[in-house]
Simulated assay, not measured.
Amino acid sequence: MDMFTVGRKDGYIYGYLFKSRGIIVLDEGKREYYVKAAEILINGNFVKVNDLETHESYGHTIAGTKARILDNSFINSII
């Protein structure tokens, strides 16, 4: 993927991860979604992370990370 674009495309929701009230969320511009797992962009490739809280506890930065989730996932919009 040459350019990272926030929004919905090809069955995914693309956005940036950050913490809101202690919970990791994906911000896609119009909405924010609580997420426990996502595919994060590392060196131009998306890598599945099944537990973002554990990933962060190992010292990896979550805030501002480019990520995507499946558009048809069971996710809760918190607008």
Rank of each mutant, 00 (worst) to 15 (best):
M1N: 02
M1R: 06
D2L: 10
F4Y: 09
F4S: 03
F4P: 06
T5I: 05
T5K: 04
V6T: 13
G7Y: 04
G7Q: 02
K9G: 05
G11H: 06
I13K: 00
Y14T: 04
Y14S: 11
Y14F: 15
G15N: 01
G15E: 00
Y16V: 06
Y16D: 08
L17F: 12
L17Y: 07
L17H: 02
L17Q: 04
K19R: 06
K19D: 14
K19C: 07
S20L: 10
S20P: 07
R21T: 13
R21H: 12
G22F: 05
I23Y: 10
I23M: 08
I24R: 01
I24W: 08
I24F: 08
V25T: 05
L26S: 00
E28A: 05
E28G: 10
E28F: 09
E28P: 04
G29V: 02
K30W: 05
R31Y: 08
R31K: 08
R31D: 11
R31L: 06
E32N: 06
Y33D: 03
Y33E: 02
A37N: 01
A37Y: 00
A37F: 01
I40C: 00
I40H: 01
I40A: 00
L41A: 13
L41N: 12
I42P: 10
I42K: 09
N43C: 05
N43G: 12
N43T: 12
N45A: 13
F46T: 01
V47D: 15
K48T: 10
K48L: 15
K48N: 11
V49K: 05
V49W: 02
D51R: 11
E53T: 15
T54W: 07
T54R: 14
T54H: 09
H55V: 05
H55Q: 14
E56A: 14
G59L: 03
H60V: 08
H60A: 11
H60D: 03
I62G: 08
I62W: 14
G64M: 02
T65I: 09
T65V: 11
K66S: 08
K66W: 09
I69D: 08
I69F: 04
L70Q: 14
L70R: 05
D71V: 10
N72R: 10
F74Y: 12
F74T: 11
I75S: 06
I75E: 05
I75K: 08
I75T: 15
S77P: 04
I79M: 13
I79T: 12
